[in-house]
């Protein structure tokens, strides 16, 4: 474990050396997502300044939901973006073989191979939203709540990664996994708003099937002092279970790969 952490540090240092070499790209890449987030946020602001609340949620409360899911997404974006490209960049070209002849875990190698700076913008936006929301609402941050926030963001990030890992594994069969990943990934758009605005079926799906609800709605509810019962505490459990499942799926994919090598 310690070995992998220090190895990750080495990969990260080398990755930043590359990024610094293309400084303009680095700046454009890491700030570009801010524009997309701004579009979504401006929309919410433009609309909500004319109505008292969205299904009982004030503007600043919606920002907390939006901020949490953006933070969770940024964790995945920074540390696991290579899952998107596994098909066309690694499997199809045969580059994946390189990971298998190295004495480290191939999944670790895949993820460590490319820290993605494009996620930094999302992280900044998410953090700014949480700060703005809690300042406007006058939230009191006890140590327990800070700990809760950190664990919520990490669990949310893990949910994103696990879902992407499951869909990315299809690359071992299909060569190209981006279409499948894209469809599942995009359901996180639902989680930018209170789940209570949707039909019951949709919120059930986002809770138990594609559990992005635990990356935004439930932890935000808890932080805002709304009662969602045990759901407030299930996030880490759901994340851990999903990670375990996704790793099993990944192993099945690896086994298939070692059977066909394609």
């Amino acid at each position: 474990m310690i070995r992998y952490l220090s190895l990750y540090r080495e990969f990260l240092i080398q990755r930043f050396k590359i990024l610094m070499e293309y400084r303009v790209n680095f700046i454009i890449g890491s700030t570009s997502t801010i524009f997309v987030q701004a579009a979504g946020l401006l929309t919410i602001w433009v609309v909500m300044r004319q109505i008292p609340s969205l299904n009982g949620w004030s503007f600043d409360e919606v920002l907390m939901i939006y901020g949490l899911v953006t933070l969770a997404k940024s964790i995945n974006h920074m540390f696991a973006d290579n899952l998107w490209t596994i098909g066309w960049y690694y499997v199809r070209s045969g580059g994946f073989d390189r990971f298998l002849v190295r004495p480290i875990d191939p999944l670790f190698h895949l993820l460590a191979d490319r820290f993605c700076h494009d996620g930094i913008g999302n992280f900044l936006v998410g953090a700014a939203l949480v700060v703005k929301s809690s300042v406007s609402l006058g939230l009191v941050w006890t140590p327990l709540k800070v700990l809760y926030l950190v664990s919520a963001v990490l669990s949310g990030g893990a949910i994103f990664m696990a879902l992407n890992l499951i869909t990315a594994t299809s690359a071992f069969w299909l060569m190209e996994s981006i279409p499948v990943t894209q469809v599942i990934f995009n359901t996180h758009e639902f989680a930018k708003y209170p789940l209570s605005i949707y039909h019951k079926g949709i919120s059930l799906i986002l809770t138990w099937l594609i559990p992005y609800g635990f990356a935004s709605f439930y932890p935000a509810s808890y932080l805002l002092g709304r009662d969602v019962g045990a759901m407030a505490w299930l996030g880490p459990v759901v994340a851990a279970m999903l990670l375990a499942i996704s790793y099993r799926v990944w192993l099945v994919g690896l086994r298939h790969y070692s059977g066909t090598g394609s």
Partner: peptide
């Protein structure tokens, strides 16, 4: 290369 892949553990 199939042989080499089996010798390196890539293929079963």
């Amino acid at each position: 290369s199939t042989t080499i892949k089996m010798l390196t553990g890539i293929l079963l």
